[in-house]
Each structure stands twice: as structure tokens, then as C-alpha cells.
Design a protein around this nucleic acid. Structure first.
Length: 327
DNA sequence: TAATACTACCGCCACA
DNA sequence: ATTGTGGCGGTAGTAT
């Protein structure tokens, strides 16, 4: 096996439009704008782009964002990220639409955060695709662009060349997803840990956001093992099993595991098992006992204990509240 | 709920 | 000399 070297950096152009929402812009900058060569080398080259590279007013008094790059730079980028477009019902400037269409034609990856989806919609690049936006605006998006298949219940939608994400913080989930695609599960997990992205948040729908999960993408032995473990949660997995699978001694495995995931193997397993349990509770009507078996808990009692500890409510109560309506 | 039997975790340290 | 490895053993955590 030979070491592959990327020929050049991957350019990420961020479309900055007034009024800039600092939170969403910051989240993009944290992922793509910082020097993270410790994760992958080269990392990304991030460009803040505005029409005529003019400074852009922020949504907060006294906040102004200087942009060194213009729409031509945006049209040439490998990935274009559209930050929120608070005036979602307002028109989108023709030169912005033009730049996005050019990028799209060139094969660039297009990404929107929150209401940035309205800019992509206006450019017509979402027609015929699934997409999402902030839940306050999903109805409006669906009504104004009937050709778009709007998904209201997801954090983000990956349609390959076009990716859209839901409200504010879901943008972080999408950015991590992109890092995972480009650099693998391990880099994404390490970054999530570095940014201290919470496994779940309290209050409202956000409480039930699931922790990012590695995808089938065996870039490193560790990532491959994580993927494998997620696919075999029903088995009684021990640290020794996982270590052997990763071709390491248990001791080294434990160390490496903490480095890439931020937790210990058992704690991580318990978390993944609960994530799976939640999914099964939401979607089907499998009994709690059977779900416990499917998730690799020795008993329903054991599952209930861990479920309560992590989620705060019982499995049955969770199902009652979050069963997906079949619409 | 309590007792018992595991397994996991992690500091320590010799060694490559 | 520096850095990573992996066995050991005490304690903490989990399973039944």
C-alpha cells in the first residue's frame, strides 16, 4: 500500500450575506477555517466570500465581517457553503445565483446551513432533490419550491453534490459529516471531541439529536472496528474482541480508543446501543425485550437502566413521545 | 435490594 | 533520549 498525497488543498468558499448570523458562521469557521493539519494534511483552505469582497454587516450591532474573497472565488471553489439567509422570503441577488450555478456546473459540492437552503433553492440546484432547512421555514420552502422534496424530520440531507442542514446547530452535524466523508470517521470523531460537541442536548427536539456516528469507511483499523462494532451491536462485544479485530493488544487498543473517541470502549458501546434502541423505539413496535436483545443488552432490565441514565426517561415513555407518525 | 462474580479501566513500569 | 507498547494489579463499574 502506498501513501496517497493530495495534490492540492480542498477549497471551501463560504458565502457571507447580510445580516451575518455569528453562530452559524463561527461553526463553519471552527471546522474548516482553523489549522487542523493534526487531523489531516492538508486540511481545508477556507475563503470568506461576499459580493465584491465587501465587508458584510452582522446581525449583531457592532459586528462586521471582512471578506477577502468575491463571488468569482466562490464559483471556483471545491465546496461552497451558504450561511443562513435570514430574509428567506426576500430575493436572492442575481450575481450570487450566477456564482452558485457556475460552481454547481463545475461539479462543486454545495452545502447550506439553516435558511441558506433558500439561496440554493433560488439557484435551482435543489430541484428534484431532497432537502431540509430550519423547522420554522420548512413549510415555506416546500410551498415556494414545489420541485424540492422537503424533509422536516432530519438534521441534514446528503444528496451527494448538494447537502442541506436544519436549524443552527444541525449545521455542525453536517460539517462533521463532510469531514467524515473527506477524511474518515476517526478524524471526524476526534474533531467532534475537540469541539466538545455534546452527544445530546437538553430541551425540545434538540434533546433527541443523536451523536454523530461513524460511517462505513474503514480508512484506519480503528475506524473500521468502530464501524464493524456498530453493525454488530447485538453481539456481546468485549474489549478483547475489539482489540483483536484492530490488531492491537487490549492495552494499546484502550489508549487508541480514547484518543479517537474520547471515551472508553464500554461507555462508547453503551452509547451506541442506546442510539440503536432509540431508533427502534421510534420506528417500529418491537417489544422492549426484543429491542434489548437486538441492541446487545443482556436483559431488558439492563437496557432500561442504561436508557434512563442516558436519555432521562424510560424506553416506553420515549416511544410514546417520539414514535414517528406514518404520514 | 443485596451479594457475588466478572469485566473494564488506568497508573505504573520495564522494555523495544 | 524519546516515544510507543503491552503486561500487571488495584479499584471502579457492570452483570446476574
Amino acid at each position: 500500500m502506498t501513501v496517497r498525497r493530495r495534490l492540492r488543498e480542498h477549497t471551501v468558499a463560504v458565502l457571507v450575506t447580510p445580516p451575518v448570523e455569528p453562530f452559524e458562521l463561527a461553526l463553519v469557521c471552527e471546522v474548516f477555517g482553523r489549522d487542523r493539519r493534526y487531523l489531516a494534511d492538508p486540511w481545508y483552505r477556507m475563503l470568506l466570500c461576499s459580493a465584491g469582497s465587501a465587508p458584510v454587516a452582522g446581525a449583531i450591532d457592532g459586528l462586521t465581517i471582512a471578506c477577502d474573497h468575491d463571488l468569482d472565488d466562490l464559483a471556483r471553489a471545491d465546496t461552497v457553503i451558504v450561511t443562513p439567509y435570514p430574509d428567506s422570503s426576500g430575493p436572492v441577488a442575481a450575481d450570487v445565483i450566477g456564482a452558485i450555478r457556475t460552481a454547481h456546473r463545475r461539479g462543486a459540492r454545495l452545502v447550506s446551513i439553516c435558511t441558506g437552503a433558500f439561496v440554493l433553492a433560488a439557484a435551482g440546484v435543489l430541484d428534484g432533490l431532497r432537502a431540509t432547512t430550519h423547522w420554522l421555514h420548512t413549510d415555506e420552502l416546500a410551498a415556494r419550491y414545489p420541485a424540492i422534496n422537503v424533509d422536516r424530520d432530519v438534521l441534514y440531507v446528503d444528496e451527494g453534490r448538494v447537502l442541506t442542514s436544519a436549524g443552527s446547530a444541525a449545521g455542525m452535524d453536517l460539517c462533521l459529516h463532510i469531514v467524515r466523508l473527506d477524511h474518515g470517521a476517526e478524524a471526524a470523531n476526534t474533531l467532534a471531541r475537540r469541539l466538545v460537541v455534546p452527544p445530546h442536548r437538553d430541551g425540545g427536539q434538540a434533546q433527541y439529536v443523536e451523536a454523530p456516528v461513524p460511517e462505513a469507511d474503514g480508512v484506519t483499523p480503528m475506524a473500521a472496528t468502530l464501524d464493524w462494532a456498530i453493525a454488530h451491536l447485538d453481539r456481546p462485544l468485549t474489549v478483547e474482541d475489539l482489540a483483536r479485530r484492530t490488531f492491537m493488544s487490549p492495552r494499546t487498543f484502550a489508549r487508541r480508543f480514547r484518543e479517537s473517541t474520547g471515551t472508553t470502549p464500554l461507555q462508547w458501546l453503551l452509547r451506541q446501543r442506546i442510539v440503536l434502541a432509540k431508533r427502534l423505539l421510534e420506528t417500529g413496535d418491537t417489544s422492549v425485550d426484543l429491542i434489548a436483545v437486538h441492541c446487545g443488552f443482556g436483559s431488558a432490565t439492563a437496557m432500561r437502566t442504561h436508557f434512563r441514565r442516558q436519555v432521562g426517561i424510560s424506553p416506553i415513555a420515549y416511544r410514546r413521545t417520539f414514535r414517528r407518525e406514518v404520514s
